[in-house]
Amino acid sequence: MDVLSEVVRSVRIGSAGARVIRQSGAWGLRFPAFAGSGFHIVTHGTCWLITEHADPVALSPGDVVLTLTGAAHGLAATPSALADLPPVVMGPFPPAPGPYDVEFVCGAYRLAHGRVPQYFRALPDPITVTPDHDGHPGLPALIDLLRADVSGPGLGAGATLPALLDLVLVHALRQWHHATGRPETDDPAVAIVLREIHDDPGRPWTVGRLSEIAGLTRAAFTKRFTRAVGQPPMGYVISSRLQRGAQLLRQTDAPLAAIARQVGYSTEFAFSSAFRREYGVPPSRFRRLPFSPELGDGTSG
């Protein structure tokens, strides 16, 4: 599995939600910062992406706005200041009926516990992606599927929505990497190590073993890895193990001791202690937490 796909899947421990929002006239919405990762996709009309520290960005049909770390931002009919936009109202409401000037689909994983992966925190936020129908035909097709999936209730939505969110995030990020010429990491030696860690986070990794894979001395590897990823090698290994553990807690009924062994902890107690430090709750409670997705209803009141 490639690094990007695995990192995107790591945010699936959050609550998955998606909405269709429609607006007309002189409208504007402010999306407050949140813990998680998400996106907006313009499916009809035009609008502007508003952020606090950058110029407004014009958006057209097919454009995708990625908010990988949940940074505050806004969407509006015309350029404006972020602080002047009314906050979006949260709740499970259908899109406004009748004619509309603009429509966009919002999707997000909201994290009640834990943090967005370091990989995402090292990238700009937000990111805009313009569709490339020739080079990346899969993304427009996924957008059509997602819009259809969230436009009305249907059987299997609980299973299809996370899969579609995963795919949209992966394909949009791949297209952004291709368009910007930016690889998954600017350091090929680090990229090799990241793939090894994500393929098997439970392996008994050491800095020495990772540096051998990179073909570097321990000191050179640690310096380059920390510069490229934003945290030391073993800190990243621990985060990857706990993210995989959180996925298994959410997606399987495996006993806690089995999950602990699978992600590299010799005992259930050691895993539970590390998990609680990272996510703020013990694994058993994390597994019982309900999903409660909320996305904006597209109104400004």
Rank of each mutant, 00 (worst) to 15 (best):
L111N: 05
M234Y: 12
F31R: 08
D2N: 15
L165E: 02
Y100K: 04
R209K: 10
F269W: 12
P131C: 12
T51Y: 01
G38I: 04
Y100A: 09
R203H: 15
G158C: 01
T51K: 07
H171T: 11
S60N: 08
G296W: 05
V193K: 05
H44N: 04
G264C: 02
V65H: 14
S273A: 10
A81S: 13
G91M: 00
G158H: 01
A77D: 07
P86A: 06
T206V: 06
A76N: 01
E212W: 10
A72T: 12
Y279A: 01
G301H: 14
F286D: 00
H177G: 01
I143R: 02
L123C: 06
L155C: 03
P56V: 02
L66G: 04
V42M: 09
V263H: 01
A260Y: 00
G91D: 00
E278C: 03
E52N: 07
W27F: 15
D63Q: 07
S300L: 07
P92Q: 02
P290L: 12
D144V: 15
A228C: 07
A108K: 13
G62L: 12
A54P: 05
S37E: 05
P131V: 13
G280K: 04
G138F: 14
L145S: 09
R218M: 11
L295C: 11
T226S: 14
A274S: 09
L82Y: 09
T226M: 03
V8Q: 10
H171K: 05
R147K: 12
H177R: 10
F39M: 04
V11C: 02
A228M: 08
L59E: 02
D2L: 08
H113V: 07
L295I: 06
A258W: 01
G25D: 09
F39C: 03
L165Q: 06
V193Y: 06
D200H: 14
C106G: 13
V263F: 07
P79Q: 03
R22A: 01
V3T: 15
A228Q: 08
D297N: 15
T267K: 05
A26S: 13
R115K: 13
M234K: 04
S211E: 10
V88A: 12
A141S: 10
L155K: 10
R241G: 04
A254M: 15
T46H: 12
P61E: 06
L169M: 13
T43C: 04
L4K: 13
G45F: 08
T299D: 00
V263R: 00
A122P: 00
P117C: 14
V102L: 03
V193L: 08
A26T: 13
L256K: 00
E184T: 13
V237S: 03
E278I: 01
F34V: 08
V7R: 10
A72M: 10
P61C: 05
Y265C: 00
G138V: 15
L4V: 15
